[in-house]
Computed example of a mutant assay.
Amino acid sequence: MRLSADLLAFQARIGHEFRRPELLLRAVTHASIGSATRPDNQRLEFLGDRVLGLTMAEALLAADKAATEGQLAPRFNALVRKETCAEVAREVALGDVLKLGRSEMLSGGRRKEALLGDAMEAVIAAVHLDAGFEAARALVLRLWGARIGTVEADARDPKTALQEWAQARGMPPPAYAETGRKGPDHQPVFTVLVSLASGEAAEAAAGSKRAAEQAAARALLERMEAGDG
């Protein structure tokens, strides 16, 4: 089969020329448009998640030979989480080539974090099936690039860190409340307030409720740690 111009351009952006182009087409086909004759990317996503995980685990071990398991685990989670996969997908404009059903397209599917993250994992799997693990590993290391060296700054989950800060001071876990939502259904913006039993609070907004919670927790934690200092 021959790839369309947009998929040929995407192929160039990720630096891998498919010998079996049908694998790339499958990787960018969402379940909303899949059929018996047009397989979607869900099974590839399953495989790609494992290929990404092994690659990241090896890369982290090589990058810091003195790191303990306790240090490596949060770094690993930061690199393989869906949000990071979606960030990488945006950098290579994966959303532009996704094959979506009409309803998914109208609801802003090309920008949805979970959908982009899943498709990125599917592309990794497609490269693995097309040219083997080393090719997929090279793709991941190329696309994730500098993130591996700078992951320490992103490794600490703000919600977990804030909860640990509160518990260390005998407080109950922080409370989160959605205080606002605006924008169209396909591109909502959530506002979340996080508060401590002692009365301190912080508010943040983001494109998903989880991201807003993380941003609010980060803001409050930074303020409380500055006060400790």
Score class of each variant (00 low, 15 high):
residue 7 L to A: 09
residue 93 A to L: 12
residue 12 A to S: 15
residue 19 R to E: 13
residue 66 A to E: 14
residue 82 K to R: 11
residue 48 G to E: 12
residue 214 Q to T: 02
residue 209 K to N: 01
residue 113 E to W: 01
residue 108 G to Q: 02
residue 19 R to L: 11
residue 146 A to R: 14
residue 159 K to I: 11
residue 218 R to G: 11
residue 83 E to R: 14
residue 87 E to L: 12
residue 219 A to N: 09
residue 110 R to S: 14
residue 198 S to K: 08
residue 6 D to H: 12
residue 140 V to R: 01
residue 210 R to K: 12
residue 221 L to H: 05
residue 199 G to H: 12
residue 2 R to Q: 10
residue 139 L to T: 01
residue 81 R to T: 04
residue 154 D to I: 01
residue 65 K to I: 04
residue 219 A to P: 03
residue 129 L to Q: 09
residue 150 T to K: 15
residue 171 M to L: 14
residue 56 M to F: 04
residue 227 G to T: 08
residue 106 L to Y: 01
residue 145 G to A: 15
residue 20 R to N: 14
residue 52 L to F: 05
residue 187 Q to S: 15
residue 183 G to S: 13
residue 145 G to N: 14
residue 100 L to K: 07
residue 181 R to C: 15
residue 1 M to V: 03
residue 64 D to G: 12
residue 6 D to W: 00
residue 192 V to A: 00
residue 142 R to S: 11
residue 214 Q to H: 09
residue 147 R to M: 12
residue 83 E to V: 08
residue 46 F to T: 00
residue 81 R to H: 14
residue 145 G to M: 04
residue 133 F to L: 12
residue 160 T to K: 10
residue 2 R to M: 10
residue 208 S to G: 14
residue 5 A to E: 08
residue 63 A to V: 05
residue 47 L to C: 08
residue 32 S to W: 02
residue 225 E to M: 08
residue 33 I to Q: 11
residue 168 A to Y: 07
residue 121 E to L: 15
residue 56 M to G: 04
residue 70 G to K: 09
residue 97 V to G: 15
residue 36 A to D: 11
residue 138 A to E: 13
residue 123 V to Y: 02
residue 77 N to T: 03
residue 181 R to F: 12
residue 74 P to C: 11
residue 167 Q to M: 03
residue 143 L to K: 06
residue 40 D to K: 10
residue 205 A to G: 02
residue 7 L to Y: 04
residue 222 E to N: 14
residue 132 G to T: 11
residue 150 T to P: 12
residue 197 A to K: 10
residue 145 G to C: 08
residue 64 D to P: 05
residue 123 V to K: 02
residue 32 S to I: 01
residue 212 A to Q: 07
residue 86 A to T: 05
residue 171 M to N: 05
residue 226 A to V: 03
residue 144 W to G: 01
residue 213 E to H: 03
residue 34 G to R: 11
residue 208 S to A: 12
residue 129 L to I: 03
residue 62 A to Q: 07
residue 81 R to W: 11
residue 188 P to S: 09
residue 135 A to Q: 13
residue 75 R to V: 00
residue 73 A to K: 05
residue 3 L to T: 03
residue 157 D to V: 05
residue 137 R to L: 11
residue 37 T to Y: 05
residue 11 Q to V: 04
residue 76 F to E: 04
residue 104 E to V: 02
residue 58 E to S: 13
residue 138 A to S: 15
residue 1 M to D: 11
residue 194 V to A: 01
residue 216 A to H: 04
residue 70 G to T: 02
residue 195 S to W: 06
residue 198 S to L: 15
residue 11 Q to M: 10
residue 226 A to Y: 04
residue 229 G to R: 08
residue 33 I to M: 14
residue 180 G to Y: 01
residue 89 A to V: 07
residue 50 R to S: 15
residue 63 A to Q: 11
residue 99 K to Y: 07
